[in-house]
Design a protein around this nucleic acid. Structure first.
Lengths: 352, 352
DNA sequence: ACGAAGCGTGAATGCGCATTCACATGATGC
DNA sequence: GCATCATGTGAATGCGCATTCACGCTTCGT
């Protein structure tokens, strides 16, 4: 009767249960549970017997039963709360998701994806996340005082943000050292012999935009004194057309500019187009350094010097911090990852 | 609000259960279950009482318990099995995911994301999906005879593919009518007065690349006879640099070309850059039609005529078909969605 | 040497819900 | 008028696993 019921209800009529594995291994079901969940308080004999039986019988745990009994979902939410899809143009997101999924796989956790497209969907999402359908939340946001993040923090839902959130304190986050990276990138241009280094800055409401601009300023003033001329052009977003426009504006306002630090790859591609259209050679007339080091950088003409971010590691670190937070005292923590400058032809020096 | 907050912690001893709601509503727990799962065989009185009690007590179903008892997971997998991340450069994926998540939300289903980055991860993923951790699978693939898709079909896991899969029969899929769209786009250029229409085709190993090329050919030969000159330049991928190179090749090989149909937005942006560098005015000297109609098209100079795809609807349709498949006989089915041509300045005719 | 502590184990319990089944209605057939 | 049916409902059951608890065994410490 029991077998009949199982056969009728599922498409796997003879689904193997943990107790079946346990019996085959000659141990009790709780012992099998301990083995399969990595509990160390099991003799090697029992462990090996269970693992052998499990693999032989093709056993896989039933996530629902595991969750129900364990009072956790074994899944974490990933919220991409970016207005529009401007950030999808660069490879940041796929790399981040690759890092996150890899680390979650290793922990046998599921990644549940959310992309709220409107205020209404966002409210529903808050309800959903607060309802305990996930154990914790990973998110990215470029909004000031993100209400979704605020709601999660207020409800004490474990959450880790990718990139420093703006306008909200008390959130755990992982970020790269944008300021230092921009500082070093600018310094590299100065060291290569360029004299009038401008920057195409990202939107000031984003942490990345802000921090990279600060790094640029620090490099310039450190080298040229407090009265150095800062040549800053803020792009309206991280897009290529914005880069084109910003580069044109820079050249119009400061015609003797001989190097540009662009705060993102797409901005740099845009700048490169403008320079080509105006017949300005790179790197002899204008030096160029970019930020992100996406794949096309190396294939560009000329290949672009660029700041390389450990995006995958950012993702894995987010996951690690989330689990620390869920296991520990829940105190907010943050981690800042280092970048590296990949030097290519676009910055080999003026007059070459 | 307080009840919701308590529920968020998961480990809360006071979590509201369905039986609590039922008691408060003066009915039995099975009746509450029927109400909350949309079963119609309940009197309006019972229904209203249950819904009122549920919302008042901040009740939310426990997905794990629901899955365990119902013998289904209430979640579907979304597999992005694209090698590298070349397809992330355009807004196709975020739009597709927006459509999918919206439809799944409405059905109270979870979206579990997978992005296998290596053969090893892919094998693990197959095991995972075959283990019954999801009820069905949505996927995109641009690979010929995708082994992951093959494995899912062989194991009779419900699956719907976004875009026509190449080299595998028997899979349900949703696609847009690429051939007809390309046909109409090419015809539009001819109707606008251009005489020598070339095309930048996508990679021939992709269905989109193939079908759009076929549509171009059909339009040309239909208008100019069987001995018409086909000016086809195949791009190595759907990237902007590939578009730049292809456009340059076209102009070198057929200098009197006066219009280009590009099989993707990024290819078209690349072509536009080449045209600008060579001083060829758009649309007076060269007409341009693109494919995808991503946001930057309208902001380009000049704004680009482009084929607009109902990508969100493609996503929602994928979900609908998946559930039909799970409920029905499991026979493969496919659906082809129509596109529309958005006419802008880039194709207003020669000599204007 | 003897009690204390540590360790591996299994019987029992319950997680929260969907489903089944039998019963009690009231409506409908003849 | 009674038999038939459709319909709404509740008691009982079980989904598959994690956890608790108590028991026996081993290893210490003094």
């Amino acid at each position: 009767m029991c077998a009949v019921t199982r056969a009728a209800s599922g498409r796997s009529p003879q689904r193997v249960r943990m107790v079946d594995v346990a019996r085959a291994a000659g141990v009790s079901q709780p012992t099998a549970s301990r083995v399969l969940s990595g509990d160390l308080r099991v003799t090697r004999e029992s462990r090996e017997a269970v693992l052998a039986a499990a693999s032989e019988m093709g056993y896989v745990v039933n996530r629902a039963a595991s969750s129900l009994a364990g009072n956790r979902t074994n899944s974490v939410g990933f919220v991409i709360a970016e207005p529009g899809s401007h950030l999808w143009g660069n490879p940041y997101f796929p790399r981040l998701m690759a890092g996150i999924t890899a680390e979650l796989n290793a922990r046998r956790q599921q990644l549940v994806l959310f992309m709220p497209q409107s205020r209404v969907e966002e409210r529903q999402l808050v309800d959903y996340l607060l309802a305990g359908h996930v154990d914790g939340v990973l998110m990215t946001t470029s909004r000031n005082r993100d209400p979704l993040l605020r709601a999660l923090l207020d409800a004490h839902v474990p959450v880790v943000v990718g990139g420093r959130p703006i306008g909200i304190r008390g959130a755990s986050f992982v970020d790269v050292d944008n300021e230092r990276a921009a500082y070093e990138a600018t310094l590299h241009l100065l060291d290569s012999g360029y004299r009038h280094v401008a920057t195409i800055a990202g939107p000031p409401q984003t942490a990345a935009g802000k921090d990279r601009l600060v790094g640029y300023r620090r490099a310039i003033t450190e080298r040229e004194g407090k009265h150095a001329e800062l040549r800053e052009m803020v792009a309206i977003d991280f897009s290529q057309p914005a880069g084109e426009a910003a580069a044109a504006d820079i050249l119009m306002r400061w015609p003797d500019t001989d190097a540009i630090f662009a705060a993102a790859d797409l901005l740099c591609f845009g700048a490169l187009i403008t320079l080509k259209l105006q017949g300005l050679a790179v790197p002899s007339r204008i030096g160029l350094v970019s930020f992100d080091d996406s794949e096309p950088n190396a294939l560009s003409h000329p290949p672009l010097t660029s700041v390389s971010q450990p995006v995958e590691r950012l993702g894995t670190t987010m996951v690690q911090m989330l689990f620390e937070q869920m296991a520990g005292d829940g105190q907010p923590r943050d981690e800042v990852l280092d970048t590296s400058l990949v030097i290519r032809e676009s910055s080999t020096g003026p007059g070459a």
